[in-house]
Simulated assay, not measured.
Amino acid sequence: MRPEELSYSERCDWLRLARTPRIGPVGFAKLLARFGSAEAAIDALPGLARTRGSSRPNIPPRSAAEAELDAIDRAGVRLLARCEVDYPHTLACIPAPPPLILVKGRLELAAQPCCAMVGARNASAAGLRFCRELAHGLGSAGVVIVSGLARGIDGAAHAGALETGTIAVLAGGLDYIYPPEHYELHHAIARQGLLVSEVPLGTLPTARDFPRRNRLISGLSLGVLVVEAALKSGSLITARFAAEQGRDVMAVPGSPLDPRARGGNQLLRDGAHLIESVEDVLAILENTPAIQPEAPRPGLAGSGLKDEADAFDFDALEPDASEFEQAEFEQVEPTPPAATADRVKALLSPTPISADELARQAAIPVGQIRAILLELEMEGKIDVLPGGLLQMSNSS
């Protein structure tokens, strides 16, 4: 049963239990199933710790929960509990959904058909253009685009769907803006789209928070589409979560000469849907069966707990942060701006692109980029094709 809304007192109790160290979504669900309410679970935790021989749990005081609720209210943010009717249905149906999420913006977007678009941070200009056009086309067809507001493909997906509807899932607090160049996009999504996070306001993300974010990206969506991803990209982990959650996995094929295409091409070899157009995605989403909650799992609901100590198996089903530390956590530490020529080279790929498009993606005046391109051509780094199109040289 899902009540329409928690009372203020119940909301404080849910917040205190959810913010208790070592209690993740699985532990939270177990405790609620065992004791019937967050308040009763909080009262029982010290005794459970003694039974197991563990240290006393560091449960936040009620004053801390009330202060967080006040800050949430002042920021114009909503706190949604898993049991409430406004909590996104698709997210509620994944194994061990987060007990609480923070949202800002148009919550109704999460009730519409959603498709995640993720990919490389160092995406090619051709990949960025295709992603933006695909997001705009899907948005025009009534599909809400979900992504993680990272550099590269994520930003292009949000920008392409900004006018039609987009959801950004953040690893940090809703008020933590990263990367800095997405300052305007972040605020535009807060006004026109929806921001989602499961961590408190003011939180700077750690390596552990990125897999949690990726699990929410796929959980909010009917399917995940990967546009350019290296073999060890965090985008492939998002695709893995999607497969585990019973969601469709899609990928855009790319040149075997471009390392940024290898992850997507591997997904295709593993059985992902091949995507070349908006129509391809729509055809897959239209055939996606309605998402229903999974049957209760032992220990997550009902009377499946073996004993009280089971309630402390808090980290079951928690994503492992270790494999994300390189692929995801790098974005928390800003790197010095790349040299202008290096930025242009990073946007080139085996897919032909015009100088004007390169200038737009690199945010460099056309006159300046032509000088850079001439230098790269003389170095043998690029090939100039008929019609003035440019591509990365096969020999570079």
Results as ranks from 00 to 15, higher is better:
L138W: 04
T51E: 14
E108G: 12
V77I: 15
T51C: 07
T51N: 11
C115S: 06
L109C: 09
G148H: 02
D43E: 14
A120Y: 06
A110K: 05
S55D: 15
V85L: 11
P99D: 00
E133M: 10
A92N: 10
A157Q: 08
L45T: 00
G155I: 07
R52F: 10
C131Q: 11
F130D: 01
R78D: 14
A161S: 11
H158R: 01
C83V: 12
G139H: 03
S124T: 01
C114W: 07
Y176H: 15
A171S: 07
P98E: 00
A135E: 08
A65R: 10
A75S: 13
V103T: 14
V118N: 09
E68G: 03
P179G: 10
L170I: 01
D154A: 08
P99Q: 01
I94N: 10
P57S: 02
E39I: 07
I177R: 13
I177M: 14
L79H: 00
C131N: 13
A41H: 06
P113V: 05
A150S: 12
Y178V: 14
V85T: 13
S124V: 00
A159T: 11
N58Q: 15
A120K: 06
I59D: 07
L69R: 04
G139E: 06
G76E: 04
C83D: 08
D43V: 05
I177A: 10
K104E: 10
R74M: 14
M117W: 03
G76R: 04
D154Q: 10
P113D: 10
L107F: 08
A96E: 13
I72G: 02
I42V: 01
L149Q: 13
R50P: 07
L170K: 09
L128T: 09
A96F: 14
D154Y: 14
V118E: 02
L162Q: 06
I94K: 11
A171H: 09
A44H: 02
L91N: 04
L170N: 06
N58S: 15
A111E: 15
G142T: 12
A65Q: 04
H158N: 09
I153K: 05
G139I: 08
G119W: 05
C93F: 07
I72L: 07
I167Q: 12
R132W: 08
P57H: 08
C83Y: 03
E133W: 12
A120C: 12
A120Q: 07
L107M: 09
T90Q: 13
P88H: 04
C115H: 11
R82T: 09
Q112K: 15
P95Y: 14
E68F: 00
A116W: 12
I177Y: 04
P97N: 00
P88Y: 08
E68C: 06
